[in-house]
Amino acid sequence: MATSAKFDLDRGMVITGKWRHRRYRVERMLGEGANGKVYLVQQDSRLMALKVGLDTADLQSEINVLQALEKQQKKGNGGSPFLYDVDDLKLRSGKEYPFYVMRYVRGTKLPAFLAASGAEWFPLAGYNLLLRLADLHGSGWAFGDLKVDNVLVADYGRVELVDYGGVTAFGKSIRQFTEIYDRGYWNAGIRTSDAPYDLFSFAVLCVQLFEEKELYRLTAGTLPQNRGTAELLRLAQQSQQLKPFSGWLARAFAGGFRDAAEAADAWNVVIHRIGRPSKPVPWWTKALFLLSAAGLAASAFWLAGGFG
């Protein structure tokens, strides 16, 4: 069980691993998760992210997931490693904490990114996020705790997932989740890990991006037994940006996609539909249609003749 002991690593502090003796200099805190704190650190002028855990078993469990993911990625496309080091650190108080060091991901959260770059980047960022999820789903994992805080966006809508504490092998119970993104909370299914679980959270995240106030009103003012996806979908239809995706969102809320790869394809279809607003049908299309209709009639006549 996580001890309630508070700790802080100060800027400039040098951390030395107890077992492997690697040294890191602390730059600043990047964030605080459910089971630890993440710091930006430097080693030989290379920036990395270092996560300190409150509980050894809990953090090791997360490390196991990262190691398994890394192994699978190496087999596949040889993606860059994200786990550099695993060790323990000792604070001046004498207390020891486990930590691991991973790749540092630069980026901002989706709301800030969209505010700075414009909502027209939303469809692409969403697509890229679906592709990230598709990588995980392809290896048999759900991300689990998909939420605004765990998605970072870099230039041109490139997306990275951070905080792998919720990643769960398909078929097991989701290790970590946040209520409003959880399909169980919306009376839309149980908490056993599968690909549709993430896609449900993704859909809630979309609603949150454009109808945040309404979403919170919904969670505060609705009786638990009345919470449902119909309400979420109603919010999506209110939003100009989400309207084109409402069919897609309805399917995600209903658990209708096999995995994120299928969902990404469907998302892409919507993007292209938005990109090409319906124009009047040009004359040559009509001519082509008439021509082929005539051809069809002719061949039908010929077939009938053949049998007769």
Binding site: W19, T56, A57, Q60, I63, N64, Q67, V86, D87, D88, E96, P98
Partner: peptide, 10 residues
Amino acid sequence: LEELPPEKRS
């Protein structure tokens, strides 16, 4: 668990 080196904890 803490007494084991990290690679054995896994």
